[in-house]
Design a binder for these strands. Structure first.
Lengths: 146, 146
DNA sequence: CCGTATCCCTTGGGATACTG
DNA sequence: CAGTATCCCAAGGGATACGG
């Protein structure tokens, strides 16, 4: 079940917006952007998508490649991605069972899009680290002054 | 404190990668990409950034515009964004106090980057919704067959 | 090999009350 | 107005054990 399907559109149609951004979303929790962002942003999804970029992988292969993931969370993550049409699950009726996972075309486009964000992170991580350090230093000085 | 500062680099340096992606990240939890993704993916950050795109806003103005946010979470979110150098907080020493928030140049570039993700979501929400519906239908049929 | 089921702990985040 | 401080609950996710 898990909803996410039958809720109202949620994406903000620009009703008399004072600023005409190309995109603008509202604050509702059932917003489509939120739904999908939550998927993208959970602890493991992007890692799975990244690993599947160029190749099919079996369950156990994914498990080995993703350091620290529990069996449960790998299953849950894969099911979510499959439900969203981002990953295709193929079961080979052999014994012992063999299941492999691959990106769908939609999954590939998501991966490409996410790369721009990763690129941004890569380009700005030093600046962010510096900002954090500066903030923490100011905070420490302030605390010391008390 | 809150770490995030002193941990090891965490971003995968491409040591003998069999696939030479432009970007590739490892599975470590302290990965820089994760750190920053966690920030942009939390419940309110992007909403705040979006609202600040073109204008400064005061604390209460943000609170009014973001439907459903608690006072506590607005404070926490703003502090995080400020610490990361994405938002600048300006206190006017008047009485009653006046504080306003604006994006830094870095914050502006983040916002722009995120827009590509929002655009992807916008372009593909129907396909995702359809995939979910199909998945749920198959699941329901399977359950009925039991 | 590929999962599901259960238990349990940690974290995110809402409600409320209080301060400079 | 612009926050802090406290309490508390629900969801996320790890560990473990079992099943087809």
């Amino acid at each position: 079940m898990e909803e996410g399907t039958s809720t109202s559109p949620g994406y903000c149609c620009d009703t008399e917006g004072e600023f005409n951004d190309a995109f603008q979303w509202d604050a509702r929790e059932d917003c489509e952007v939120r739904q999908i962002l939550d998927r993208i942003a959970d602890k493991w999804s992007l890692l799975v998508v990244a690993l599947l970029e160029h190749r099919k992988l079996r369950f156990t292969e994914l498990r080995r490649e993703i350091d620290g993931i529990s069996q449960r969370m790998l299953t849950v993550t894969l099911r979510h991605l499959e439900r969203d049409g981002l990953v295709r699950r193929t079961v080979h009726p052999t014994v012992p069972p063999r299941v492999d996972y691959a990106l769908t075309p939609l999954g590939v486009t998501l991966h490409q899009t996410v790369q721009t964000l990763v690129a941004w992170t890569d380009a700005n991580q030093r600046e962010i680290a510096a900002a954090r350090a500066a903030y923490d230093r100011r905070e420490a000085e302030f605390a010391a002054a008390q």
